[in-house]
Deep mutational scan, measured.
Amino acid sequence: TFVALYDYESRTETDLSFKKGERLQIVNNTEGDWWLAHSLTTGQTGYIPSNYVAP
C-alpha cells in the first residue's frame, strides 16, 4: 500500500480524490505518471498522480 503525501482533488471523472495520509492500494502502475489506485479509506477506485504518494 501507498500513503498520500498531499490532498488531491479529482479533475476528471476517472481521477480519484484523496486526502493526505490516506492509504491507497495500487491496482496498475504501468500508465506512466498516473496510476490506477483503490482507496482503502473510501473504497473508490480511480487514477492518481504517482508523485502524490509514497510507499
Rank of each mutant, 00 (worst) to 15 (best):
N28H: 09
Y6M: 12
L24N: 00
F2A: 06
Y8G: 01
T12D: 11
G32Y: 07
A54P: 07
E22W: 03
D15Y: 09
L16F: 11
G21I: 00
Y8N: 02
W34M: 13
I26G: 02
T30M: 13
N29S: 14
L36P: 01
Y8V: 02
G46A: 02
Y8L: 03
A4L: 05
Q25E: 12
P55L: 10
A4T: 06
W35I: 09
E22G: 01
T45F: 10
F2C: 09
Y6I: 07
Y8W: 09
T41Q: 11
P49E: 03
G21F: 04
R11S: 13
N51S: 14
L24S: 00
Y6P: 00
N28G: 15
S50Y: 07
P49M: 06
I48E: 00
W35S: 03
E31H: 14
Y6N: 06
P55W: 07
L40E: 09
V27P: 05
S50P: 12
F18E: 00
W34I: 08
D33E: 13
L24C: 01
V27S: 07
E9W: 08
K20Y: 05
T45P: 01
R11L: 12
Q25V: 15
L24R: 00
R11G: 10
R11V: 14
S39P: 00
S39K: 06
T12G: 14
Y6A: 12
L36R: 04
T30H: 11
E22I: 01
N28M: 10
R23P: 08
D15P: 01
V3D: 06
Q25G: 05
T14E: 11
D15T: 08
L36F: 12
D15L: 06
I26H: 02
L40I: 10
E9Q: 11
S39T: 02
L5P: 03
N28L: 10
I26F: 04
S17C: 08
D15I: 09
T41V: 14
T12Y: 14
E9C: 11
G32P: 15
R23Q: 13
A4N: 01
K19L: 07
Q25C: 15
R11Y: 09
L24Y: 01
H38A: 09
T41E: 13
T30N: 11
A37W: 01
S17Y: 03
A4F: 01
G21R: 02
Q44T: 07
R23C: 14
F18M: 08
N28S: 14
T42V: 01
K20I: 06
R11C: 14
K19D: 03
T45E: 09
V27C: 13
E31M: 15
L36K: 05
E31A: 13
E31G: 14
R11H: 13
E31Y: 13
L5V: 06
N51K: 13
T12F: 14
K19W: 03
W35P: 02
Y8R: 05
T41P: 03
T1R: 07
F18P: 01
F18R: 00
R23Y: 15
Y52N: 05
Y52P: 03
L24H: 00
Y52L: 15
Y8F: 10
G43R: 06
V53N: 02
V27L: 15
R23K: 14
V53T: 04
Q25T: 12
L36Y: 12
D33R: 09
L16H: 02
A37E: 00
Q25S: 10
F18L: 07
G32N: 11
T42H: 02
Q44R: 14
G43S: 06
F2V: 14
S50K: 14
S10C: 08
A4G: 06
Y47S: 04
W34V: 08
A54W: 09
L40G: 04
W35L: 08
E31C: 15
D7F: 02
E13I: 09
S17G: 10
S10N: 05
T30D: 13
F2G: 02
P55F: 08
Y47H: 05
S50I: 06
Y47C: 11
T41H: 11
D7E: 05
F18W: 01
I48C: 02
R23V: 15
S17Q: 07
K20H: 05
F18T: 02
V53H: 03
D15N: 10
W35A: 04
T1W: 15
G21V: 00
S39W: 00
D7T: 06
F18I: 11
V53D: 03
E13K: 11
W35R: 02
T12A: 12
I48L: 05
N51W: 15
P55Q: 10
A37H: 00
S17P: 07
D15Q: 15
T14N: 14
N51A: 14
K20V: 08
T1K: 06
K19P: 01
Y8M: 03
V3Y: 10
E22N: 04
D7K: 03
A4H: 01
T30C: 13
